[in-house]
Structure formats: structure tokens, C-alpha cells
Amino acid sequence: MITLRLSLALLLGFGAALPAGAETPPTLKAGVTVASDIVRLGDLVDNAGEFSEVAVFRSPDMGHTGQVPAWRIVEAARRMGMARIETGGRTDVAVTRAARVIPLADMEERIATAIAGSLGIADSSRIAVTFDRGVRPIAVEPTVRGTLSVSRVDHDQRSGRFDAMLVVAGAAQSDRGGFRVTGQAAELVDYVVPARSLSRGEVIKASDLTVERRPRHELAGVPADAISSLAQAVGQAARRPLVAERALRISDLMKPEIVERNGNVLIHYEGNGLSLTVRGKALEAGAEGDTVQVQNLTSRKTLQATVTGPGRVTVVQRAAVTTLSAAGIGSPASTNLQ
């Protein structure tokens, strides 16, 4: 709290014990809000009568409250000629200077928008603004309704330091240059981390992930290929066991395996005008589009096949080769599908 200083402009004089016409004695108030930069006796004392407009103290800064000791008020009144004031047992009076107070959050938003624009960033929420210690909310005259804006901002991208001037249209301080604020501004970067440990091959759901946001200069330990959005990971599978709260990388993911190792599969043969399906066993696990080894359970022959769906693989036979001989045209080479 700010202790109000006794005004150097105290008016000295003598008067009656009670103001003329007063029905009740002057009584100290518990608290008061003033709009002026001067506190008058009538602001502090009920029934001050002819002494009401006498200036006695300077007001606190706009938007602040100061405590005036009761004995100082009594002493000042006595010197003005008001011989007696009922204090009601109060030891001090709280004096608040009326103001329109602009919160730090609004100031941060304006600074962030200005710096985002200078960096070519469309979303100002990606700029984190931290004011230096001692920066306080802006307080202007209570009648001022002008908007808050940034008249100047200097920002060092390397260090993140900024120096800015804020103005409020119609405020007296704005006419004198504005309100200077300093601090740190950093671009925030998103990256995705598992919310829990994930096993190899486990298909990832949105609930398994969390998006972290940190200033770019704090990302020394985050890999360059870290995933920045949930869409990049949801529906993919873990290529290896993943630890919770560690940045998720593109190389940590793979397509979900839809064919299990040693699992039953349907082998679909295509080629040479033929198409048939037989039962088989996958000798390797694989995702859609992967090439895996499978075994035809009828012939026990091992084949290379492409995973085309859950529990399904396809073997595409090459076209038959026609051989030419001196005797004439040979027969097409046969293909063993079994």
C-alpha cells in the first residue's frame, strides 16, 4: 500500500469547534474513493461543513489505495481550525484513487499481436509475453474510454527481449508519450508426447496423446522431426515401445500391422488370367502395403506376398514367358500356383 504524503499546501487557520449548522459532529470515514489528485477534508470526514473543500493530502497514483493514519487527519483538521473529529476507534482511512485499470492480460495480448505481426505469425496466441518485474497494470482516468494500442515495439528475435510503448486514446499519460513496458516475448512451438507408455504395434488414439507447447528457445532437447499435431499420429502404430511425456518423432510411428506373425491369412493369387484364394499362414507381421513371407498351407510352399487388408495378402504372378526356338513357336511357360 502507498502511504499518502501530507500535502505541502495545508491551509492553516482557526475556526469553531464544530462547523456552523452541523447537527452531528465531524466523523472520520472508514474509506473513500477520490477522482482528483488531491484529497480534501470532506473526502475523509463526514459533516466537515465549511472545511469540506480544504485540500489536505495528495492522492495515491491512479488505481492505487493508500492508508492515511487517523492521527494525521485529526492533526491536519486541527490546524485548519476543526477542533474535534470523532474517530470511532479507527486508526487509519483507506483512500483509493479512482481509475480505469487495464489488466496485464490485455497488455500482453496487444504486445503479442504486434510481435506476431512483425514475425509473420498469423496466430498471436503462439507468442508468449512475460513482462519484467515491476510492470503494473495501466491505470488511466476513470472517464477515459479509448482503446489500448501499441504505438511502438522493438523486439530482438535472438534474445526475445522487447521494449514497447502502449497508449490509451484520451488518457493524459498517452498525450505525454504513453506507457513504456519491457519484457520477454517468445514464439511457442507445439509438439506431441504420449500421455502414457505405449507398446510396440499398439494403435494410437487421440486420448493416448498430449500436445505440449513451449518457447522455441527451450526446445534444445526436442528432436527436429518431432510431431507437432495429433493428426500426424492418431491411427498410426508404435514402431517401438514409447515412453510417456517424451517427444514423439515421425520415426517412432508406422502403419498398424493388420497381419500378425504366425496368424492365419487368406492368400489371393492373381495372374495369367487366373484368380484364386487359398488359406495360408503369415511368417511375418506387416502393415498394409508391406511385403511379407507367407506359407501356403496346402503345398507348404513359402511365397512373397503384399498385405492388402486385415488377414489378407496378395501374390501377383508374373506374366508367362513365351520362348522361341528354331523349330517354331514354343508353348507358354506354366505357372505353379500350388
Rank of each mutant, 00 (worst) to 15 (best):
V150Q: 01
S149H: 11
I138A: 06
V101L: 05
R79F: 12
V140C: 05
R145M: 06
M80V: 11
V54K: 09
F131E: 02
G117P: 06
D163Y: 00
I138Q: 11
R126C: 10
F51C: 04
S118Q: 15
T87K: 04
Q157F: 09
A114V: 04
I111F: 06
A122M: 09
R84H: 12
W71P: 00
V93R: 05
H155M: 11
G81E: 08
I73D: 10
V54Q: 12
A77I: 10
T91N: 14
A114W: 02
P103W: 06
A94P: 05
T65A: 14
R84F: 15
A55G: 12
M82T: 02
R161N: 11
G146S: 01
M80H: 01
A112C: 06
I121S: 02
P103Y: 04
E141S: 14
V150E: 00
M62F: 11
H64W: 12
S118T: 12
A55Y: 00
S124G: 02
E141A: 14
D123Y: 05
D156S: 13
V101I: 14
M62H: 00
I138D: 07
F131V: 02
A94S: 13
D156N: 15
T143L: 12
I121R: 08
V68R: 03
G88S: 10
E75I: 02
L104S: 10
A139T: 03
M62I: 13
R79D: 10
G134R: 04
R152N: 09
V129M: 11
P142F: 00
V144T: 13
R136E: 14
E75F: 12
W71R: 10
R161E: 11
D61G: 09
D154N: 12
F131M: 06
I115E: 02
A112D: 02
V68W: 03
A164T: 04
S159F: 05
D154H: 06
I127G: 10
P69D: 12
M107E: 15
A112K: 07
